[in-house]
Design a protein around this nucleic acid. Structure first.
Length: 791
DNA sequence: GACGGCTGC
């Protein structure tokens, strides 16, 4: 299960006879003897003797387990649940949920404790019922009950459901708040929201006085915001004894969560899902695409009913897998019909919607998905899951300020989540394209939380603005690598957000107001003084959404040609501006987008972001002016916020990073790529390691601008000899350095070693994240270095 | 001359 790089699958094209294939496949799988329920912690007891039902004392910790007999009873009954749902009233449905049976126990434990960890399994009803129970128990008489969700759609849909159950209109007693929508009123007592909203609210009201209880739902997903909230809310509860905090978790993290919040009690609520048979591959698969294609066909031809869901790491794999399944099926005579549907986030929404449409009678659906189908999307009727065992992960290396996007093995938690997708509407099967030994010995139990593998500039700025003096002492459940924190503080100092003592400057204070990466906020602030804020506002908005350009399979060249029409030769930023202005001139038309291979969804979001940022600018009394056609001013403004990410021309089309000396490449999608126009200096928005170190979104700048705007790095006087000297030194260091690991990677490795020791298995795989990096000291030594940042 | 998983304010 080592990290792998696959350049397309070398698929064997010849097909065998149907029977042979089936026979071979049957040999290939072994039943693991494990049902999903066991892994998830639901253990059926043969003799009916339940281990739960009573508090289990352990180190003074109370562990409540609910009646197992009840859970089993519920499981048996749940066969008829969908029919049931149609006939019963809302109240009856509520009472039928597993959580209802433990309602009073749950309320008692919440009354007796400030913080409770709730392990609520899938289908327990915790998300919709917990808030209502607290409301019924009187908590809303002195404040709101807030419930955070990691995703916007979840916050909206759950709020809608709960308002129906309470018989009120959405936005009155029950409301929700997400980034572009506040659907609450003075009447609101139950508020669903994304975790990011609660984090922003804590900026304005650090004790969250409006709330009597906060439920952090799906906390085991460990989003960046969740982790920051963990640290903050722990403090808030210690200051406010009247505030209740309920954190929901998965079984495997519950002890860790309980320990973090001070040995608080754990309460288990059984779920209601169907059993899923887990089948592991007997031997390691060399090519997971090939293996997945074979497995899907085998299931399809076996005659068993039910839809198939295949998990793949990325778009390219999905496309190859889909094509192969269709192609091989065509070769077979009299094969039953199959609809193959790819899905990933970048797919236009009309194509995404297809996976929810019911296939014609007698036609099976086969969905090929990224991990978007793991949590974000739920498709009913899936009976078979085929799990390749990989996902793509972005890991930030603070030393060279670069993200690496690579294929990694998933964690055991991911694998179980994926398997669970087969057991939503009936018993199912999950085929894992890796061995049971790989699962046990080579996969991490849980994925490394985002906070340990991402750029922290935003988190640092936020915590600083909350008055956290010493960030290294802030109580994180899993502290981010210290390197990463210090680097982020350094970046904020460069941008003028922190002063030499590490305190927030007025610029920093203004930057916090914007829901943006610090460099983008800075660019917006600078643009007001430079007289191009209206234009920069658009560019910043364009950079805040995922991919704008759409490149459909089979029409690559056509879409590239259309894209070139928008190209501004000296700048990708200006190219974006150009796209937006043309879209505006075409009345924000979606037809225009489709004609020009541009994602309509993305552009609509750009408009929303722009409008939100504009509101903040007005509120902060920042002036909005356009520089018209003088686009040099815009380039200089970009340089003012991104001078720390600059590269110098080295050879034909070759660049080296000015600070680190590391070779960097223009991305082939850049306007500057292969145009014969190669400026001496450029700044870039992002550095990402994929197949090479690529600079994404670049703009040509003048060398003098760099010296003028980034005096701590560059000076005109030094140009020439000393820079050459520095580059030479840098180069030497690169060649002499042994491979460096980012801290996230080190942690990954040490966790691996821990597990290896436990299981007595030798080190199984080498983990490699980045190309050789170099030490932090930049060739351009900063002229003045701030004192240690408030440490 | 390559390609980008998923969220969120």
């Amino acid at each position: 299960m080592a990290i792998i790089s696959r350049k397309g699958s070398q698929l064997v094209r010849k097909h065998r006879e149907q029977k042979e294939r089936k026979k071979a496949q049957q040999k290939h799988w072994e039943l693991a003897g494990t049902k999903l329920g066991d892994i998830m912690g639901i253990k059926k007891t043969e003799d009916g003797d339940s281990s739960g039902g009573k508090p289990v004392g352990e180190d003074g910790k109370v562990d409540y387990r609910t009646d197992q007999k009840f859970a089993d009873h519920m499981k048996d009954k749940s066969e008829a649940s969908s029919e049931f749902a149609k006939k019963k009233t809302l109240l009856e449905q509520r009472q039928y949920l597993p959580i209802f049976a433990v309602r009073q126990q749950l309320l008692n434990i919440i009354r007796d404790n400030s913080i409770v960890i709730v392990v609520g399994e899938t289908g327990s009803g915790k998300t919709t019922q917990l808030t209502q129970y607290l409301h019924e128990d009187g908590y809303t008489s002195y404040g709101m009950v807030g419930c955070t969700q990691p995703r916007r759609v979840a916050a909206m849909s759950v709020a809608k459901r709960v308002s129906e159950e309470l018989g009120s209109n959405l936005g009155e007693e029950v409301g929700y708040a997400i980034r572009f929508e506040d659907c609450t009123s003075e009447k609101t007592v139950i508020k669903y929201m994304t975790d990011g909203i609660l984090l922003r609210e804590s900026l304005r009201e650090s004790d969250l006085d409006h709330y009597s209880a906060v439920i952090m739902d799906e906390a085991h997903e460990r989003s960046l915001n969740t982790d920051v909230l963990f640290g903050l809310l722990r403090e808030v509860v210690s200051r406010r004894s009247d505030l209740k905090l309920i954190v929901t978790s998965a079984t495997m993290d519950s002890d860790k969560f309980a320990a973090f919040f001070g040995n608080v009690p754990i309460f288990h609520i059984p779920g209601r899902t169907f059993p899923v048979d887990i089948l592991f591959s007997k031997t390691p698969q060399e090519d997971y695409v090939e293996a997945a294609v074979k497995q899907a066909l085998q299931i399809h031809l076996s005659g068993m009913g039910g839809d198939i869901l295949i998990f793949m790491p990325g778009q390219e794999d999905i496309e190859v897998t889909s094509d192969q399944i269709v192609e091989r099926l065509e070769d077979l005579e009299s094969a039953p019909p199959l609809t193959v549907l790819p899905i990933y986030s970048q797919l236009p929404s009309d194509l995404q919607a297809k996976i929810f449409q019911k296939a014609p009678d007698g036609v099976r659906k086969c969905i090929v998905a990224t991990n978007i189908a793991e949590t974000s999307l739920t498709v009913d009727g899936i009976m078979f899951v085929v799990d390749a065992g990989y996902c793509k992960l972005k890991v930030f290396n603070p030393r060279i300020g670069m993200d690496a996007l690579q294929v990694y093995p998933i964690s055991q938690a991911n694998a179980n989540q994926r398997a669970g997708r087969a057991g939503r509407t009936g018993p199912g099967q999950c085929y894992r394209l890796y061995t049971q030994s790989a699962f046990k010995n080579e996969m991490l139990t849980t994925t490394i939380p985002e906070i340990q593998r991402t750029n922290l500039a935003n988190v640092v700025l936020l915590l600083k603005s909350l008055g956290v003096q010493d960030l290294l002492l802030f109580h994180f459940m899993d502290p981010p690598p210290e390197d990463n924190m210090l680097n982020s503080m350094y970046q904020l100092w460069i941008l003028g957000a922190l002063d030499n003592t590490g305190a927030l400057t007025p610029t920093g204070r203004l930057m916090v107001e914007f829901p943006l990466d610090p460099a983008l906020s800075k660019m917006l602030i600078v643009s007001c003084d430079m007289g191009c804020s209206a234009d920069i506002l658009i560019i910043v908005s364009m950079l805040s959404v995922p991919a704008i350009f759409y490149r459909p399979k089979g029409r690559e060249e056509e879409s590239d040609q259309v894209r070139e029409k928008f190209s501004v030769p000296e700048s990708d930023h200006l190219t974006y501006l150009n796209v937006y202005l043309q879209w505006k001139n075409n009345n924000y038309s979606s037809i225009w987008c489709n004609e020009h291979f541009i994602h309509t969804k993305a552009m609509r979001k750009v408009r929303e972001v722009r409008s939100q940022l504009k509101d903040i600018m007005v509120q902060q009394r920042m002036n909005l002016v356009s520089c018209g056609s003088d686009w040099d001013i815009i380039r200089k403004c970009i340089c003012a916020a991104y001078f720390h990410q600059a590269a110098k021309l080295k050879g034909i089309g070759e660049y080296v990073n000015v600070r680190t000396g590391m070779p960097c490449h223009l991305h082939p999608t850049s306007s500057l790529f292969g145009m014969g126009y190669t400026p001496d200096y450029i700044t870039y928005h992002e550095l990402v390691m994929t197949t090479k170190e690529y600079m994404q979104c670049v703009t040509a700048v003048d060398g003098e601008w760099l010296a003028e705007l980034g005096p701590m790095f560059y000076s005109v006087k030094q140009a020439g000899k000393s820079r050459m000297e520095n580059r030479r030194r840098a180069k030497e260091e690169i060649t002499n350095m042994e491979e460096e690991m980012s801290l996230a990677e080190q942690q990954l490795r040490s966790r691996r070693e821990d597990q290896d020791r436990k299981s007595n298995v030798g080190s199984v795989r080498a983990v490699k994240i980045c190309t050789p990096g170099r030490k932090e000291e930049a060739p351009m030594t900063p002229k003045r270095t701030p004192a240690r940042f408030g440490l």
